[in-house]
């Protein structure tokens, strides 16, 4: 039987908790098979996912919960992020043209691009009772 590590974290939709989210993911990574060079990137991908929920998921002033569940084994490092905010499917967002983005001085929409660059799987599903469930997976090398 392979070694599996599992833990969860719940934060409210406030950017001040991003640092808590990053610490949590970093701690889980260090207990997993993820290599040092992948650590910063996976932390970044999760930060981007949670930032998107904080910025777009809930109406201003409305408090909401964001749940992160990490499960890591020999084969992969998986993070499932659940929230009950506005339905938002990142799979519906087309890949961006960075040249155009910079010329227009646009600074939004980079998070999904990064998640796709970094993770091997970025899956979204709408789940009854939870609403949004985003799964990010990085395979072990």
């Amino acid at each position: 039987m392979g070694h599996t590590v599992r833990d969860r974290l719940v934060v409210t939709n406030d950017t001040k908790y991003l640092i808590v989210v990053r610490d949590f993911v970093g701690r889980m990574i260090r207990q997993s098979r993820v290599t040092r060079e992948e650590e910063n990137k996976i932390i970044l991908a999760v930060d981007e996912a949670v930032t998107n929920i904080i910025e777009h998921g809930y109406e201003p002033g409305v408090e909401g919960l964001i749940e992160l569940e990490v499960e890591a084994d020999e084969a992969q490092f998986k993070v499932v992020i659940r929230d009950s905010g506005r339905v938002f499917n990142p799979e519906s967002v087309p890949n961006l043209d960075m040249g155009k983005h910079v010329r227009a001085g646009r600074r939004k929409g980079l998070g999904i691009f990064l998640m796709r660059q970094i993770m091997d799987e970025v899956r979204y599903r709408f789940k009854d009772g939870v609403k949004n469930e985003l799964t990010l997976v990085k395979y072990s090398k």
Partner: peptide
């Protein structure tokens, strides 16, 4: 994160 890099892009 991209929010930070976005400041320079903007």
């Amino acid at each position: 994160s991209s929010a930070g890099a976005g400041v320079f892009i903007g």
